[in-house]
Design a protein around this nucleic acid. Structure first.
Lengths: 339, 339
DNA sequence: CGAAATTTTGGGAGCGCTCCCAAGCCTAGA
DNA sequence: TCTAGGCTTGGGAGCGCTCCCAAAATTTCG
């Protein structure tokens, strides 16, 4: 069933049917109704490939998730992001093409994504420090949006949270409670969010005039296992509190602590990051930084759709607010307990 | 940059370039090399829309995840499934189009998925008893594969595990350990896997000539919160052991038990289902039924690709093996403890 | 060496749509 | 009544590719 067929059945021309299904106002009302009736009756659905070819756009967005550590994808972060993107796409009558890509793509893979002539734009999640895809995108002219800021190029559009400020606030909270010997389990330092959160940790210590102890900084990989391993190495160094750069890692840290028979927060306090669904249900419930992941996804999609509609406009940036969620994994602090 | 252009640059015709990029053997070797060189130099990438239109296929698979409970998508099940599908697609040079759909789609949405002329086939991670999309697919002639068996129509292809047998084995394990008063927290009964696992529970009891007590059967929804709520209601009924139809719910059950100061497995033993990554890291580590979710995804994709290549062939079915993973959430059993 | 068989290449047609321009229709005002 | 102007409509061209058939080039073999 194609345009021509529908045209024949409704006694009009191909062009008129095309106008009707594209909501062109230049159609007499009774003609429109007649065509619409046929469309409905035969269940006509325009061919996306043909449309894309003729019109030069497809209403399809690409979503690329560069995934080095495959275990990372188990983090609810990505499902949430995808849900946000997907719902915005549904809302705006767009579709999503998904690529889970190994970040050391070959050149060919990159071109396959950027020049397949099928997608109108790309959302790239999980920002690496130097992603060749992002570089290719920046040099090409396919609209794109990053989820997570770009460290250097200020001509790219993105939606992000202020990871540095949020981390700083989280650590400041620990300091305010009286904790002093505060360690951190960071994310991978080749990920922007990982680096930014460490930066925030440093800033918070500096705000109080505290020197930071390199022994109290351990690099994790945003996975549970990574958090567990880091916490085990951290334990002998006797931190009073740990700022863990993701809830998933905090879960691992919690497990290491439990195995070592350390009480949380009495022996070691913990602050996480993300406020993933499981954070509230952990034992003890995690104090953490909430970031609106699903909303970030939706906004990224909308931003991209807008960018596609108005090409050549300047880069857009949205910084979403975070919120420190106080739960039970840090308490009134050592100060209070001394009394 | 298009075919014609590449043809001009390599001094051959459009057709020859087309043959080269499609690996048609009917090209002289030196011609092939010359064209390939140009393709590489200019970074030519064929236009997918044009290709799809002309060839009638696109090497794109649709993936539909009907998502009633959006919280369900937080279960690592879906990321794992997507990973499996995605990696098989990468391997076979296919792409994925993703739809997270509300299961009470309108007719239009269904046609949009099945008749957009863009995808060569569909994978439905459907698990609902009566999914209108599946019905539409069965009536149409777009190749499709279900992840999870179809309850009635035996002409559809799917990949699944034997949920009933696996559940039966899990409960048999509890019985063997000496537990008798065994409850179950089921999945939603409008989901096939939910119903099948309950069925397996019943079968295991029956195998031992045990009547089942309706009071010990609580319906959950495959979410953590659902497991938690069910366990709370279950507690006063004093079960010795609980077969929980998903690890996510088991996590909730564990939380309810912890809050009620019940020890696992001493006071209540637990068996989960899925062997999600977090099951091994729960406190205590969960005895559970492992199912190869990622592999199921990969096999579904490969099955679909095969179905596309050989249309009109009979339905394919693959039942993947499950494995009971013994961990600490059930022990030698009350029998042992009495001595 | 020449004809037949085979390999290799070129070009037309067409996939289903959008976009554009021209033609047809209708209304209103002179 | 006639015409200018604004609605509507139709049809050609073309998006970039594949598929098919025929032509050209090459090889094979008597």
């Amino acid at each position: 069933m194609n345009l021509e067929e529908v045209a024949r059945l409704s006694g009009v021309s191909r062009s008129t049917v095309s106008r009707v299904i594209n909501n062109d106002p230049n159609v007499r009302e009774d003609t429109r109704q007649r065509v619409l009736e046929v469309v409905r009756r035969v269940g006509y659905q325009p061919n996306t490939a043909a449309r894309g070819l003729a019109a030069g756009h497809t209403r399809i967005l690409g979503l690329v998730i560069p995934m080095g550590v495959s275990a990372l994808f188990a983090d609810p972060y990505f499902p949430l992001l995808i849900q946000g993107i997907s719902s915005a796409c549904n809302m705006h009558d767009h579709s999503v093409m998904l690529w889970l890509a190994d970040p050391d793509y070959e050149r060919r893979t990159i071109r396959q994504i950027t020049h397949n002539g099928l997608i109108d734009g790309v959302i790239v999640a999980s920002m690496l420090m130097d992603d060749p895809l992002v570089q290719a995108l920046a040099e090409g002219d396919l609209p794109f949006v990053l989820v997570g800021r770009h460290p250097t190029d200020n001509r790219v559009s993105y939606v992000d949270v202020d990871n540095r400020a949020a981390a700083r606030e989280a650590v400041a909270h620990l300091l305010r409670l009286g904790y002093r010997r505060i360690a951190t389990i960071t994310g991978p330092q080749n990920m922007i969010a990982g680096a930014d959160r460490l930066d925030g940790y440093r800033a918070a210590l500096k705000d109080r005039g505290l020197a930071f102890d390199p022994d109290l900084i351990l690099e994790g990989d945003f996975t549970e296992a990574g958090g567990y391993a880091a916490m085990q190495r951290l334990l002998p160094r006797r931190p009073e509190a740990v700022f863990v750069a993701s809830d998933m890692m905090a879960l691992g840290a919690l497990r290491a602590l439990r195995e070592a028979a350390c009480r949380v927060p009495e022996d070691v306090a913990l602050v996480g990051f993300d406020d993933m669904p499981f954070a509230a249900r952990a034992d003890p419930p995690l104090t953490t930084v909430r970031q609106p992941v699903q909303r970030a996804g939706a906004i990224a999609a909308e931003m991209l759709i807008d960018l596609i509609k108005h090409p050549g406009q300047g880069p857009r940036r949205v910084i979403l607010p975070t919120e420190l969620i106080i739960r039970a994994s840090c308490d009134a602090g050592p100060k209070a307990r001394k009394h």
